[in-house]
Simulated scan of single mutants.
Amino acid sequence: MAHEVRGVVARGKGAPVSVETIIVPDPGPGEALVKVQACGVCHTDLHYREGGINDEFPFLLGHEAAGVVEAVGEGVTEVAPGDFVVLNWRAVCGQCRACLRGRPWYCFNTHNAKQKMTLADGTELSPALGIGAFVEKTLVAAGQCTKVDPSASPAAVGLLGCGVMAGLGAAINTGAVGRGDSVAVIGCGGVGNAAIAGARLAGAAKIIGVDLDARKLEWAKNLGATDVVNAKDGDPVEAIRALTGGNGADVVIDAVGRPETYKQAFYARDLAGTVVLVGVPTPEMKLELPLLDVFGRGGSLKSSWYGDCLPSRDFPMLVDLYQQGRLDLDAFVSEKIALDDVEKAFEKMHHGDVLRSVVIF
């Protein structure tokens, strides 16, 4: 039996989103039907709306979500009806070359639901990041459901589904921040501040937040930054060096994803230090660096995909840390909104007014 629910749809490039009737099929083999309880408004959803990812409109937006499994299809063993889960877009296949080499966090063939959710007239929808969670119920591959502590707040832990995990993982997994390290994070929005929280969890001694917005720098201090730099006041590279004994930081995380900020990250790191790119560039952006500087400075230049996370490993651990009071996921929830308020939330995001707006069902 199909389920008729309400969801947020982007019908065309740049057009305001609309709340429409969505038809969700019962789960087939390997699939799960999830009743969504909360879903964060992520910048990636805005990228979809603006046509910045692909042109497979209409999109069913939303992907940073938590909810309860309502039904599962044939062959599903990892979750069962009644399980509280965080949704993820890395349902590892176990068979690709990354998985077979023991690196499933790089899985190149992640699973999504095979059946399509549709509009009432039968038009097939493209779910954002294979999830589509600005909707009362969504259909996903069972592997996209990660079971976590059911007593946790859905609004908070659902954010692990994308942006917060991306930032935490950029510091902990990709950057391998260790005890006593110095870390600089360029861009203190949701992802950047999550990287700051991750560096704090990892035991970094000095954590420097860099941004142009004084409000975001206050958020950074609240989430663990020991120092902040307003890039309006001067060269952030020189400021980071001044705060690290003239050497530069051990790990510099670019959470913006522009050529200018990447160059700042490159030159703000210590010799043999690490640069992590977690901000998402647009297709037309180009980077030019002297190759001798790349060679001469040594170290590592890394990109972080989804915080190089393995949801089955990382989500339960991070939820446990949240429950213990050691990871303040609630601090990322700027406001709780209704499904009809997603378009307004995009505007607030554009102006930098929120870390996350979270739709509550």
Rank of each mutant, 00 (worst) to 15 (best):
G75C: 01
V76Q: 08
R97Y: 07
G75K: 07
C145N: 13
E78D: 13
D121T: 04
N109D: 14
G40T: 13
L87D: 02
I53L: 15
N109E: 10
L61H: 13
E50A: 05
G73A: 09
P58S: 13
R101V: 00
G102P: 07
W89N: 08
C39S: 15
V69H: 05
V72S: 06
P104D: 04
T44I: 13
R101P: 00
L129Q: 14
G130L: 05
D121I: 03
W89C: 03
T118H: 00
P127C: 08
L61P: 08
F59K: 03
C99T: 07
F84Q: 09
R103Q: 13
G122E: 03
G62M: 09
L119K: 10
A71C: 02
P127G: 11
S126F: 09
E50P: 01
A91M: 05
G51I: 08
G75T: 06
V86A: 02
D55S: 15
E74T: 15
V72E: 02
E56K: 15
W89Q: 02
D55T: 13
V68Y: 10
Q115F: 01
L119P: 08
L100V: 05
H111T: 00
Q115P: 02
G82N: 10
C39W: 08
E74P: 12
A141T: 05
G40M: 09
